[in-house]
Deep mutational scan, measured.
Amino acid sequence: QTVVIGDTTYHLNNPEAAQQIAKELAKKYGLKVVISGNTIKLK
């Protein structure tokens, strides 16, 4: 699972954790979560 935040890319072996982290950050910073395949992007 790949999480992309701005110009930073994180690789996590746990998809659920990756999605949870993405949701928390999106909520905290008012970002939009875009999931395509096994890549999660925060914009």
Score class of each variant (00 low, 15 high):
residue 1 Q to D: 09
residue 1 Q to F: 15
residue 1 Q to T: 15
residue 1 Q to H: 15
residue 1 Q to E: 05
residue 1 Q to G: 11
residue 2 T to I: 14
residue 2 T to L: 12
residue 2 T to K: 12
residue 2 T to A: 07
residue 2 T to G: 05
residue 3 V to Q: 01
residue 3 V to D: 01
residue 3 V to F: 06
residue 3 V to R: 02
residue 3 V to W: 05
residue 3 V to S: 01
residue 3 V to A: 02
residue 4 V to G: 02
residue 4 V to K: 09
residue 4 V to H: 08
residue 4 V to D: 02
residue 4 V to R: 09
residue 5 I to D: 02
residue 5 I to C: 15
residue 5 I to T: 01
residue 5 I to H: 03
residue 6 G to I: 11
residue 6 G to Q: 05
residue 6 G to K: 04
residue 6 G to C: 15
residue 6 G to Y: 10
residue 6 G to S: 04
residue 7 D to F: 14
residue 7 D to M: 13
residue 7 D to A: 12
residue 7 D to W: 15
residue 7 D to S: 13
residue 8 T to Y: 15
residue 8 T to L: 13
residue 8 T to I: 14
residue 8 T to Q: 10
residue 8 T to F: 15
residue 8 T to W: 15
residue 9 T to P: 04
residue 9 T to R: 12
residue 9 T to C: 15
residue 10 Y to I: 15
residue 10 Y to W: 08
residue 10 Y to T: 02
residue 10 Y to P: 02
residue 10 Y to L: 14
residue 10 Y to H: 04
residue 10 Y to N: 05
residue 10 Y to A: 05
residue 10 Y to E: 03
residue 11 H to R: 04
residue 11 H to S: 06
residue 11 H to N: 08
residue 11 H to A: 05
residue 11 H to L: 08
residue 12 L to S: 03
residue 12 L to Y: 15
residue 12 L to M: 12
residue 12 L to A: 10
residue 12 L to G: 03
residue 12 L to F: 15
residue 12 L to T: 07
residue 13 N to G: 09
residue 13 N to W: 11
residue 13 N to H: 09
residue 13 N to D: 14
residue 13 N to S: 13
residue 13 N to E: 11
residue 14 N to R: 02
residue 14 N to C: 14
residue 14 N to W: 12
residue 14 N to T: 13
residue 14 N to G: 09
residue 15 P to M: 13
residue 15 P to C: 13
residue 15 P to A: 13
residue 15 P to S: 11
residue 15 P to Q: 07
residue 16 E to R: 10
residue 16 E to T: 09
residue 16 E to G: 07
residue 16 E to L: 10
residue 17 A to K: 11
residue 17 A to D: 11
residue 17 A to H: 10
residue 17 A to G: 03
residue 17 A to N: 06
residue 17 A to C: 14
residue 17 A to S: 09
residue 17 A to Y: 11
residue 17 A to V: 11
residue 17 A to L: 13
residue 18 A to F: 13
residue 18 A to G: 02
residue 18 A to L: 11
residue 18 A to S: 03
residue 18 A to R: 02
residue 19 Q to L: 15
residue 19 Q to I: 14
residue 19 Q to W: 14
residue 19 Q to P: 01
residue 19 Q to E: 10
residue 20 Q to W: 12
residue 20 Q to K: 13
residue 20 Q to N: 07
residue 20 Q to H: 09
residue 20 Q to L: 11
residue 20 Q to T: 11
residue 21 I to D: 00
residue 21 I to Y: 12
residue 21 I to G: 00
residue 21 I to Q: 01
residue 21 I to T: 04
residue 21 I to E: 01
residue 21 I to N: 00
residue 21 I to H: 02
residue 21 I to S: 01
residue 22 A to N: 01
residue 22 A to C: 05
residue 22 A to M: 11
residue 22 A to K: 04
residue 22 A to L: 11
residue 22 A to D: 00
residue 22 A to V: 07
residue 23 K to Y: 14
residue 23 K to R: 11
residue 23 K to G: 06
residue 23 K to I: 10
residue 23 K to T: 09
residue 24 E to A: 14
residue 24 E to I: 15
residue 24 E to M: 15
residue 24 E to S: 12
residue 24 E to C: 15
residue 25 L to S: 00
residue 25 L to M: 05
residue 25 L to C: 08
residue 25 L to P: 00
residue 25 L to H: 00
residue 25 L to I: 06
residue 25 L to G: 00
residue 26 A to S: 06
residue 26 A to N: 03
residue 26 A to Q: 05
residue 26 A to L: 10
residue 26 A to W: 12
residue 26 A to C: 13
residue 26 A to K: 06
residue 26 A to V: 03
residue 26 A to H: 04
residue 27 K to A: 11
residue 27 K to G: 04
residue 27 K to R: 11
residue 27 K to Y: 07
residue 27 K to V: 07
residue 27 K to S: 08
residue 28 K to N: 02
residue 28 K to Y: 11
residue 28 K to P: 00
residue 28 K to I: 08
residue 28 K to V: 05
residue 28 K to A: 04
residue 29 Y to R: 06
residue 29 Y to F: 09
residue 29 Y to L: 08
residue 29 Y to Q: 03
residue 29 Y to A: 06
residue 29 Y to V: 06
residue 29 Y to P: 05
residue 30 G to D: 03
residue 30 G to F: 05
residue 30 G to V: 02
residue 31 L to Y: 08
residue 31 L to N: 03
residue 31 L to H: 06
residue 31 L to F: 09
residue 31 L to I: 10
residue 31 L to T: 04
residue 31 L to P: 06
residue 31 L to R: 01
residue 31 L to M: 08
residue 32 K to H: 11
residue 32 K to I: 15
residue 32 K to L: 13
residue 32 K to V: 15
residue 32 K to A: 11
residue 32 K to D: 09
residue 33 V to A: 03
residue 33 V to N: 00
residue 33 V to W: 03
residue 33 V to S: 01
residue 33 V to F: 06
residue 33 V to L: 12
residue 34 V to E: 11
residue 34 V to Y: 08
residue 34 V to H: 07
residue 34 V to I: 11
residue 34 V to G: 01
residue 34 V to M: 06
residue 35 I to K: 04
residue 35 I to W: 05
residue 35 I to A: 04
residue 35 I to M: 06
residue 35 I to L: 07
residue 35 I to T: 04
residue 35 I to H: 04
residue 35 I to S: 03
residue 35 I to R: 04
residue 35 I to N: 03
residue 36 S to T: 11
residue 36 S to I: 13
residue 36 S to C: 14
residue 36 S to Q: 11
residue 37 G to H: 04
residue 37 G to W: 03
residue 37 G to I: 06
residue 38 N to F: 04
residue 38 N to H: 05
residue 38 N to Y: 02
residue 38 N to V: 07
residue 38 N to C: 08
residue 38 N to Q: 06
residue 38 N to W: 01
residue 38 N to G: 07
residue 39 T to S: 07
residue 39 T to Y: 06
residue 39 T to P: 00
residue 39 T to C: 14
residue 39 T to L: 08
residue 39 T to M: 09
residue 39 T to N: 04
residue 39 T to D: 04
residue 40 I to M: 01
residue 40 I to G: 01
residue 40 I to K: 00
residue 40 I to V: 05
residue 40 I to W: 01
residue 40 I to N: 01
residue 40 I to F: 02
residue 40 I to S: 00
residue 41 K to Y: 15
residue 41 K to I: 15
residue 41 K to L: 14
residue 41 K to W: 15
residue 41 K to E: 12
residue 41 K to T: 14
residue 41 K to C: 15
residue 41 K to D: 04
residue 42 L to V: 09
residue 42 L to H: 01
residue 42 L to Q: 01
residue 42 L to K: 00
residue 43 K to V: 15
residue 43 K to S: 13
residue 43 K to W: 11
residue 43 K to F: 13
residue 43 K to H: 09
residue 43 K to D: 07
residue 43 K to Y: 14
residue 43 K to L: 15
residue 43 K to M: 15
